[in-house]
Design a protein around this nucleic acid. Structure first.
Lengths: 238, 238
DNA sequence: CGCCGTATTGATTAATGTCAACTCAGGTGG
DNA sequence: CCACCTGAGTTGACATTAATCAATACGGCG
């Protein structure tokens, strides 16, 4: 996996600006940075960006690093509902409520830009463009969740895993990294939780792909060797 | 199951108005009916409101009846992603794209009000309030999908079924019907698809609840006898 | 009356979960 | 520096759940 060119960490201003230029939504947000300050949040591995139950105040644009969203059922059962990477917008599911329904925590050292949505509204700033961008983001997110539901509801363990690996590759590729060679930021257990399986099943699946030569697996280093075959294993996600 | 007081079916105007008064979003929409015409769509059982792939033009507010959303994977596999009842807004997942990603079809004779969102925009009508309402709806929808993911990913067949029956009851209750006694509008197969199971499993589950006396099942007539116990079977959704 | 879509039930099989032993790497403190 | 500890991952044996296959029943409707 390639590393991003270093950016000036000493300057929150630069950091925010750089990150804001990278996505359509970011550029839309950049417009607001003239009218108010956008804070930069630095997170250590494992640290929470938002706790479930926290009052909703801001969204966060992940500038670098990665995170996982965890939803907790009434009986304490928890499930990873989403993995986030740079340029993803975090906390969207809180937009209809006063509190965050899911917890989000960093999988590694990460940097995020706070988008103080409620504060912008209170300041009477016109958030019309932002709202339109949010609608698109939300609808997109909705579609993603629906695909995940399809994945959870109608596929075998192996198909899920294959789809997951391809999806990760696609997301890395979209960010300018290699789509076939990358490092997993999450544990086997996180993956299992996300895919509605047990960690042993993930382990077995990876071992199997490795044995077959479809994917070279060395701990968390993933290298897709036979994209065609992995696509067939995923069946529906080509 | 109680029936709604009869409304004047001969007048689309009345019908639309009545439906529009029933939900917050509906009242928001009512404001637009002064500036343009809101069409009423009547659907026979099994008829499509939207086909997957149709260009996105309008949302639909279901005024009466019920519908199911079906998402089709690349390999033709399909899954019911959602059931809709009166007052639900249909087609939200198309908001970020040019085409509808899911098909929606009526489960019985149904009536919907067309919300010609794209036309409103083209006419230059100010959709700011509507946009805010949409954001809330979308976020709500997102949370619902997440709960479904949790259901699909981390529960047994029986838990899913129990949760489903309670959820249906809750939704009927929210609409002024009985929450413990209702008629299923969908087939066992639809339920199975939605819950990521096979129809035989649904059948067995219902038989089991019936045998235990938890839920009285007679074909599609459901009558929850032991809410407490069903809640325990659902475990996490009280 | 007989048919078709829907539903129930039983027998068997396949997939995944569970439990348990073991490896490995990294970090910590004596 | 090494011994220990902990968290993560792998692998195997076995148990359990739900899918599959198959037979049969029900019910509305032409």
């Amino acid at each position: 996996m390639t590393t991003r060119p270093p950016i000036d960490l000493s300057s929150a201003r630069n950091l925010a600006d750089a990150a804001l230029q990278r996505s359509a939504l970011g550029r839309c947000l950049a417009g607001y940075s003239a009218q108010t300050t956008l804070h930069v949040v630095r997170l250590q591995k494992g640290e929470h960006i938002v706790h479930a139950g926290d009052p909703f105040e801001s969204l966060f644009l992940l500038s670098s690093g990665s995170a996982k969203a965890v939803r907790i059922g009434i009986d304490g059962r928890e499930q990873v509902t989403r993995f986030y990477f740079a340029e993803d917008l975090l906390g969207l599911d809180a937009l209809d409520a006063e509190v965050h329904p899911t917890s989000i925590r960093a999988l590694e050292y990460s940097v995020a830009i706070e988008v103080p949505l409620r504060r912008l509204e209170r300041m009477g700033i016109d958030v019309r463009t932002l709202n339109e961008a949010l609608i698109r983001k939300l609808a997109h997110e909705l579609q993603h969740e629906q695909m995940t539901m399809l994945l959870l509801g109608s596929t075998t363990a192996e198909e899920r895993l294959a789809t997951f690996l391809l999806d990760l590759g696609r997301r890395y590729a979209a960010r300018g990294y290699s789509g076939t060679e990358y490092v997993l930021k999450m544990t086997r257990e996180d993956i299992a939780s996300y895919l509605g399986l047990k960690l042993e099943t993930i382990s077995r699946g990876l071992s199997r792909f490795n044995r077959e030569g479809t994917v070279q697996v060395e701990g968390r280093h993933i290298s897709i060797r036979d994209r065609e075959r992995l696509g067939r294993a995923a069946a529906w996600a080509a």
